[in-house]
Write a protein that binds this DNA or RNA. Sequence first.
DNA 1: GAGCATCGGGG
DNA 2: GTGTACGATGCTC
Length: 814
Amino acid sequence: MAKVTFFPIDITYRIERDKPVIYLFGRTTGNEKICVTDAHFEPYFYVIPHKGKEVEEKLRKLKVERSGETAEVIRTEKVKKHFLGRDVEAIKVFVKFPSDVPIIREVIKDWEMLEYITEYDIRFAKRYLIDKGITPLVAVDAEGEFVTQRARVPVFRADKIEQKGENSLESPKVLALDIETYNPDGKNIDTEKNPIIMLSFYGENYQKVITWKKFKTKLDYIEFVDGEVDLIDRFKTIINDFKPDIITGYFSDEFDLPYIKARADKYKVKLDIGLDFSELRVNKARKVTSNITGINHLDIYKFIRKIVGPSMDTYAMNLNSVAAELINEKKIAVEVDSLAEVWDTNSTELESFCEYNLHDSFLAYKLTEKMLPNIMEIVKIVGMTIPEIARMGFSQLVESYILKQAQRFNELAPELPHHGILAKRRMQTYTGGFVFEPKPGLYKDIVVFDYRSLYPTIISSHNIDPGTLNCSCCEGKKTAPVEGRKKYWFCTKKKGFLPTLISDLITRRMRIKDIMKEKNTPLMEARSQSLKLLANSFYGYLGFSMARWYSIESARSTAAYGRYYIHKVIDEAKNEGFNVLYSDTDSVFLSLDGKTKKEAEKFREKINLELPGLMELEYDGFYPAGIFVSAKIGKFGAKKKYALLSEEGKLKIRGFETVRRNWSPISKEVQENVLNIILKEGKPEKALKYVRGVLEELKNNNIELKKVIIHTQLQKEIDSYDAVGPHVAIAIRMREKGINVGPGSRIDFVITKNGERIRDKAKLPDEVSEKDYDPEYYINNQVVPAVEKIFEVLGYSKDDLLESKAQNKLAKFF
DNA sequence: GAGCATCGGGG
DNA sequence: GTGTACGATGCTC
């Protein structure tokens, strides 16, 4: 009997000699690739029978004929389980093949003797990982022997398999790829007509570009082949020789790999790059995914868009913008629209396209390298594989985590909702966080407090869970502060399953934070972030229609408690004589109004004494000055619009229009300067003078041209715009000049004096000279709107900015 | 303003 | 694959 220790990377199963066999692909602690098989795992699901009914007998006799095959129950077992807050006697029903499970469940779903059928909808491979307590990337010990079997890596047949300890794979081998395709007619992608003309790879100490038109070059990484078929062939051999754990690309799930697959199919080339010689699988369900057995295909775009995207500055998620922001790198600037022509004319320019092609792989590699610590931490917490982490939504991450823990806590999972239930759930809504409408004004000495992990700590502290909801033992006790007639309460005697999990996540993160105070490592940072991400997703999960542990009552109660606790701070702060300026969901802004920071701190401590469980109000920061603007938007309450000055003298601007990218530099500059003069120096009259000065300069055309350039990104095809705004008009002219513009193109323009409509006045920056811009436009549509709201707060109207009559309306603020 | 449709990324 | 898949934004009525 031999032993191996390995890090699992990918998992699948297949049917062999009449039974399902689990395949775990990974890398051994000796750094060799390996495939470990396990034939000792049986498919099963659970039923909960009604009390007093004997159903095991009937189940055991069950045989279902389906297209010539027989699905049958092999055996049953009585098991004690927890299910949504109660103890149940369930029956574990074993069948022969995984595919028999849905067949059997379909037949018994209407049996009246059954109360509930569940866990028939958990994928077999996932079931295996859960039941064996195996987490991908964490070391697994296997006992068994190496066997001879057709595969690209050694195969080890395991008789015993166990995961103990936390030792995990540290640096998986990553190979990035990117293709260029022949595309003569613009944007349309046609995998049938247009060949792949370049293919690049980038890995550690490895760079390669394959192409099939020869030209003179000194670049040693370029390799010439005879045609597209040979290129595809090299694609296969390079992957096979490099032996990556992860293949990565930017949008490769939906472009590069499907394209390669489509071309291979056309030539009837088998893309059998799977470690078991299976082919690259392109799944065209709703969202395309591309998978290779044994190798993790990670589309780094998907992960970035989902996890990092929302907090990024860039709006566009294309490779250029994302690389610029995350790794401070850009794509190589070549005119990709001309590639087809360059290809046809056999030009030596092809070399620069090869460099471009390689560089895109390099960017995908670097982005993956940067994101990998976070991805791997999430894998280790929720137990899904790397490609799954990248593709799944937040709620599915939560669910994977809960399913994994359900096994440990002997909890039965509810079934996935079916069509009718789903439709009903989608109709249900609930109220979110509270937003305090600020009284417009300029304020001094602002203290900001916020609840640390508000929703997770509420769920934990109030035991919010579908299984503790409206329990009979606590009826008549305290209910959640939900508006309306519905009464929700949660058991105070027995801790719920989800609150148990979330408490554990919060305390784990607190422990890591404590250690980080001593020694901060990127790994701990990644772990802390992942735990926070997961804990914060529970609240949304409870209200997510697809969730197994869906509970709109729990989601509503959580939000209601959130509003209750933030109101508590607001009310008590007012009672203590603080001036409450603003509040949003979990944070409160107070102005000291003569009180000291110490008194504010005392107030915070007092609140904390009254909070249950893990809930805590934290000190977020102190700001010497701040300005709040009211802008009520419909029924959704006050808009989040304010600017704060930190003690270090930095401005924190939220919600003011010009922080958006499509304004001219001059309006951004003026807005920032105005806020600085008002907040830092406390001199609104000086700010007013300053603005009037700028307006005067604008009027005399003394402002530099580069400060009046506006840039906007084209969001769709030029011809599909109905409303021709200035940037669209410019795009049309750029096209007429032969410049290729399309969705995503950045359009720079200046508004000039000549013309009637704004779109006629718009000109390309190099078409105009320094003094051509239209002062009126920049005054009325750019600079004044950027600062108008700020001055309104101080009692100045738009006219005050434009006209030079000085009125001292500021006295009341100082 | 609600309800439906379409992008997004990629060459 | 023992199932199913998004979410933000723009456009129309």
